[in-house]
Amino acid sequence: MGQIKIVTDSTADLSLEQIQRYNIKVVPITINFGSDSYADGVDLDADQFYKKLTTEKVLPKTSQPSPEMFRQAYDEIAAEGDAVLSIHISGKLSGTLNSAELASKIAKAEVIPIDTKTASQGIGLIVLVAAEAVKRGLPRDEVIALTNKSIPHTFSVFAVDTLEYLQRNGRIGKAASLLGSLLQIRPILYADPEGMVAPYDKVRGRSQIIPSLVAAALKNVSPDQPVNLSVVHSWNKEGAGELLKELQKHYEIVDLHSGMVGPAIGAHIGPGAVGLMIQPSFDSLQKS
């Protein structure tokens, strides 16, 4: 029986520590500012990206990795007899999963593409479930089953400063219903069960954003169990810190990540966003 390898894409917003801890292969999304192209996390980090975002006259666009990029990644890390779990951003939000599926048909190893139906560290949390299962030596079928089980148990919710970036980049999804009605209203959005961006709540004024996000977490993931938590932001470190502080009052957190949303997701949500991704801890998920 061969080894199990983990591949994802840069929309997972994994930290370098998370990538190195589990030896995860990350295939970068391409960020385009006009005629200039950058590999997400390779040629352009989060700080550099947000500085460009606030100074460039053109909005960035993203393009998915090609099937050939995925094939090269699979063949680089896996041999015949190995299995690759290729875990990606929602197929409703990007063509990345489709590229991975096409590449899986021509790779040397067996490749199992997985649609997380979410984005950013929502993907990241699911990737880490798979990676932890591999690290603990679970059989392949159990690794796959637990990874798939974690998908509906992972909740992602966030607040954006403006819907402009989602609208212009065609990722606004069901949140389009909020356009033209905002004024001082702040939209709270989430990754719905279909894997689309959808309205979760509307609050009046910035002061209500953190309470709404915390309430959303408590409603969807019980505080009566240990959890894995990611708090993310796009140049809104103060908001992320406040959100984390409030969540720590309610949850026993086993695995915590707090950091910036990378360029691939930042291109669609813009600066000023804050959000959270939460799921039961690995042991809680395995027992449930």
Rank of each mutant, 00 (worst) to 15 (best):
K219M: 08
H233F: 09
L189K: 00
N236R: 10
I126K: 05
P199G: 02
N236M: 12
S177T: 13
A145K: 15
N148I: 04
G241L: 12
I210C: 07
S207P: 00
L213G: 03
L128C: 08
D192H: 00
L163N: 09
L183I: 09
N236C: 10
G180N: 04
Q225W: 06
V127F: 08
P139G: 09
T162H: 14
V129H: 07
P199T: 06
Y190K: 04
N236T: 12
A133Q: 05
I151Y: 02
F158P: 03
I151G: 02
G195L: 01
L163I: 13
R204A: 02
K237M: 11
K202V: 07
P152Q: 13
H153Q: 15
V197K: 00
K135P: 03
I144V: 15
T162N: 15
V134E: 01
L178M: 09
A159M: 12
L183R: 07
T147F: 08
E242L: 13
V143E: 03
A133Y: 02
T154F: 13
R204L: 08
L182F: 08
E132T: 14
W235T: 13
S156M: 14
N148T: 11
R206N: 08
L128P: 08
E132M: 07
E194D: 06
R136A: 10
V134S: 00
L189M: 01
A191K: 00
E164P: 04
A215R: 15
L189N: 00
A215G: 08
V197R: 00
V203N: 04
T154M: 14
N236G: 12
F155A: 03
K174P: 02
P187Q: 03
A175D: 04
Q184L: 01
I185R: 00
M196C: 05
I210A: 06
I126P: 03
Q167W: 12
A159T: 13
V214G: 07
S207A: 07
A240V: 09
L229I: 07
S156H: 15
F155D: 01
P193L: 02
L178C: 08
I210W: 05
A191N: 02
A130Y: 10
